[in-house]
Nucleic acid binder design. Sequence first.
DNA 1: GCCGATTATGTAATCGATTACACTATTTGG
DNA 2: CCAAATAGTGTAATCGATTACATAATCGGC
Lengths: 342, 342
Amino acid sequence: MSKIPKPATIQDVARVSQVSTATVSRVLSNPDLVSKSTRGAVLDAIRETGYRVNQAARNLRMKRAGAVLILVPNLGKPFYSGILAGISEGFAGSDYAVLIADTESNPLQEETLAGYFRDGRIDGAISLDGGIPSTALQQCVTYGAGDRIVFLCEWVEGEAFPVISSDNAEGARLAIRHLHDLGHKKIAHVTGPDGNVLTAARREGVVEERTRLGLPARSEWIIRGDFSLESGHEAARRILAMDERPTAVFCAADMVAFGLISGLVAGGLKIPGDISVVGFDDIEMSGSYVPALTTIRQDRHQLGRRAAEVLLGQLANTGKALPMKSALPVELVTRASSAPPN
Amino acid sequence: MSKIPKPATIQDVARVSQVSTATVSRVLSNPDLVSKSTRGAVLDAIRETGYRVNQAARNLRMKRAGAVLILVPNLGKPFYSGILAGISEGFAGSDYAVLIADTESNPLQEETLAGYFRDGRIDGAISLDGGIPSTALQQCVTYGAGDRIVFLCEWVEGEAFPVISSDNAEGARLAIRHLHDLGHKKIAHVTGPDGNVLTAARREGVVEERTRLGLPARSEWIIRGDFSLESGHEAARRILAMDERPTAVFCAADMVAFGLISGLVAGGLKIPGDISVVGFDDIEMSGSYVPALTTIRQDRHQLGRRAAEVLLGQLANTGKALPMKSALPVELVTRASSAPPN
DNA sequence: GCCGATTATGTAATCGATTACACTATTTGG
DNA sequence: CCAAATAGTGTAATCGATTACATAATCGGC
């Protein structure tokens, strides 16, 4: 039996450094209140004892949960990985634990989110899911959590929570402009699901830019999708059946582009020879897909970091909400799936 | 200003039901010790006050962390989503919070994992990463956490922790047998990265079954990959350059199969016409890929659940470790990417 | 009808931190 | 040189649960 060294408490540190626990606590959380010499002695004692603060005790006393919850629509979508990494990084320095919940596999019950706040299990939340019911959000507000919820990428229309997202409309415009610059005129767009805020923003960008550039618009060139591989494949079927095929397609997500490309290829078309394809997101696979996908890059890592920072700010400021919407820049990444029309 | 109802404590419940806090506590954690009538009164009071136990207080008193950590090699890989869902589900009933860490984006420092245990931030861990250094694991053992670590899918060779995984060798055998049954004789295998336990298990299954069936083996038909799309693509290049091409390829992961297929198609081959392809994992995309991928399905949800159950068992049993290795069955899913050779 | 076992409940210590308040020593201002 | 302000530290209450121990009541056996 090896003996397990039991962790040092603040009492131990106080004893070793010959001060009260109050002073030790102050050294940790408010060093300026303590004289330089005492502070040195305490820090030495901390090093000597290997003391680490017990979060459960601190949380209890401070009436915090010491945790934040991240709501992800579907962990399986590669798009979210970089974002989660960014979020983790953003919270790394803090003493908050990061909980992750998949809202698709574990559909959020109406009162679940508010329940987490009520039970003091979380101090704040970041939602990547724009599909949270308003009623659920209102319940959180009731529990005073209204200023500790941040939306990331997606958001709920009509609710006043801070939102960090990419400049979706600009991304769409960039994609259209790129295709236009290559010489394309007949440009189709595969959208996301109806009712999704990203779908709306990107579609608007498409329509706006297409109008601005004086490009022809046919209603069948706006194809409804749902961000999935399948929907891209379905879009390919539709396009193959069109009398007047577009020469380029901008997809609202990379996954859609993959489905589209394999569908078109299966239908005998060459990419980008016959049809150019542009995606959105720049997920990891996109660079190594065959053909490598031209796409709009979202800085997923940065998005995550920013959301973490905003939430940390809210948690620190005992002050009130700071509702705001910040859009991070996006970038066109030109690869092999787009080329001039022949 | 709406007033925020402050949460009821165990004291409130005690007052309302006219018993001591001790009794209330017992009703919650050890109902049999309390008489039926008192129990009823307490439960009524709990309902009336809307009492929820404060985890921070409970954890402090019980010297637990109330959390478990899941170590995931790369959250971005679609393979992990179902597993995480299963794990969450497994812990749903318990009062453990589930923390998730991505070991690739946030490489685990040597002492980090042990540090989590030492600081009482976690009670247990599930690792999907077989690349944890033995030294780090030994440190955990030092802190008495040796029987609260469970490996899932991957594991560390030579360490005595419980392992839950799929029957990898059997999966490989199934794949080879399937191709053999279709009439293939020249079967290649794209492996995972060297040094990975899954790579080894699957390769052994391939070699074993190929031998058993008396199939020819050429060393160039074992192609080293790394579970990535790129490595599949690279494998395609190699195969295209071979004098004696295999008529079927079994890939150690679906992602590899996707890369392989697109590479082969780009090289002018038809799948499965010229070459049949079988993957491993059955990730979400596989069914909707074009062509739909024949693959070995791992029950990811079940894997996650089992790991959660095993860890919960260890956490409940104050007893000692129960090192064991359990292999869940796998299943062949026949789709469009495999067919008889022509 | 008495004694020990069993059942049901209460009292109070405890987990390990934070912080209001009190106190002393030192500095500042007039 | 004294009152008031400031700086530095300690005492002890507190956060909200669990649980060892004490106590009271009930039961069964002989």
